[in-house]
Design a protein around this nucleic acid. Structure first.
Lengths: 147, 147
DNA sequence: TCATTTGTTACTTTATAAGTAACTTGTGAC
DNA sequence: GTCACAAGTTACTTATAAAGTAACAAATGA
């Protein structure tokens, strides 16, 4: 498959909306920053609205965060997406009549769940506010490097 | 894309080789347990050999673990594969002239690396020996459930 | 009422992994 | 030595999930 960067784009949208609250927040403008297209941005925004992370008003250009950036974690954004959320995948088609093939699926599923929990726990510690701060910091570093 | 289950299949091979050391360990037989084909099994085995997890002798049916199952972790198997190992992916194509687009890649990369490290640390705690024990346990549970 | 924007649906394209086939190389039996 | 067979390798085809795109309905406000 293609490597999904939906999570990255969703965070991008949230950061953009928060940072440019007084600027142009049309799906067109946001698509320009992501270098994607407005339709894709609107679909992602729709998912974010459903997850209660973003608030929009149909027909108007007025998106804003549904809660403070400090209270939006990578994890909740991740879980708002409609993509598969498993990071590792069990082979669903193994020989049930074999000692290994018949029991490895459940065994690996338990192991992968453990890994998944560790990853999600880490995602829960990273907030949109931290990402925004990171973006601002890097921008400042760049401008001072130009002197 | 398709969801990769290479990691699952690679672990399957290692478990199979260890558990059936005295049985038929041809790529054909292993493929039967995975319900895949011998060519794919041989390719995976080749990667495991390169990573020094498995030892084979060309032309003969004689694969065996290159080290004890207690010393093979999910992480080293994962890292032996030739697939992309990043669990989360930054969008590589964002507008560099935008405050957000120009700085979000590096910021997210740092955040994703943090999540990756947590997942890998967890993978390092799970050994092939534990997976094999899990397979055996489930097999026993099944046989007692039949009584 | 009309231009503009969001929200939604359907379709096309692209990227990555699985599956397959064919060929080369190595081994051991005879 | 040669022959059957298995590992090892390479190239190609198929399947699948995500990105990209287009089109249109619904909502808004000038």
């Amino acid at each position: 498959m293609k490597y999904s960067h939906k999570l990255s784009d969703a965070i991008h949208i949230l950061a953009y909306v928060d940072m440019f609250q007084d600027g142009d927040l049309s799906s067109q403008a946001i698509a320009g920053s992501i270098e994607s297209n407005p339709s894709l941005v609107r679909r992602l925004m729709s998912l974010l609205v459903k997850a209660d992370l973003l608030a929009t008003k149909p027909g108007t250009i007025a998106p804003k965060l549904a809660r403070p950036a400090e209270q939006i974690t990578l994890l909740v954004v991740f879980q708002a997406l409609d993509t598969d959320q498993r990071l590792l995948h069990v082979d669903e088609k193994t020989n049930p009549d074999c000692l290994v093939g018949g029991n490895i699926q459940a065994t690996l599923d338990a192991a992968y769940t453990q890994v998944q929990r560790a990853a999600e726990a880490e995602m829960a510690t990273i907030t949109l506010a931290q990402i925004i701060a990171g973006i601002r910091e890097r921008a400042i570093q760049k401008s001072s490097a130009r002197n």
